[in-house]
């Protein structure tokens, strides 16, 4: 089993699980708290949650894989979110995404091997007038073109 970056936080995770022990219906709440704590949901964490709440690992993973918010891979230092909501889409966000994927050498949903960037697609950031929009660690960058999007990334190198 691959090493997880969660050992240091195990005690806190145990506390979260203990507060919901034996309550399968609390699964999503616990997943949120665990991901907030650790940053992602590796297998060991999922097993601990399954055991604690009394659900199967299959159910845990099924829920995680359903919601894009949950991730089983560590996120990069910089979280790049490209909006593909309707307004951004018609103003060219697919080209932005395509270019960023090429630039970073990863697909949306993945992180770079050096742990610096992760890339995801989101639906509407509420800044449609600035479309196409992307955020980097919650800071918005608007009116992008493929070249300017790449230039934005350079700021975070």
């Amino acid at each position: 089993m691959e090493a997880c970056q969660c050992e240091a936080k195990w005690e806190e995770l145990d506390k979260i699980i203990a507060a919901h022990r034996g309550r399968p219906s609390d699964l999503i709440e616990v997943l949120h708290q665990a991901q907030d704590l650790i940053g992602y949901l590796p297998r060991q964490v999922q097993v601990a949650i399954a055991e604690g709440l009394g659900v199967s690992l299959t159910e845990v993973y099924s829920v995680i894989s359903f919601y894009h918010h949950f991730t089983v891979k560590p996120k990069g230092k910089y979280q790049v979110s490209v909006c593909k909501g309707t307004a951004c889409y018609v103003k060219g966000s697919p080209e932005i995404l395509e270019r960023l994927e090429k630039e970073l050498g990863i697909k949306a949903g993945d992180s770079t091997d050096d742990g610096k960037f992760s890339l995801e697609v989101v639906r509407c950031l509420g800044a449609c007038g600035l479309g196409p929009v992307m955020t980097v660690n919650k800071r918005a960058h608007g009116l992008l073109k493929p070249d300017t999007a790449v230039a934005v990334l350079k700021q975070y190198q």
Binding site: S56, T58, E59, Y61, S62, S65, F66
Partner: peptide
């Protein structure tokens, strides 16, 4: 047994 479930969406 719960060996399998829907994964993804």
């Amino acid at each position: 047994v719960k060996a399998i479930a829907p994964m993804g969406r």
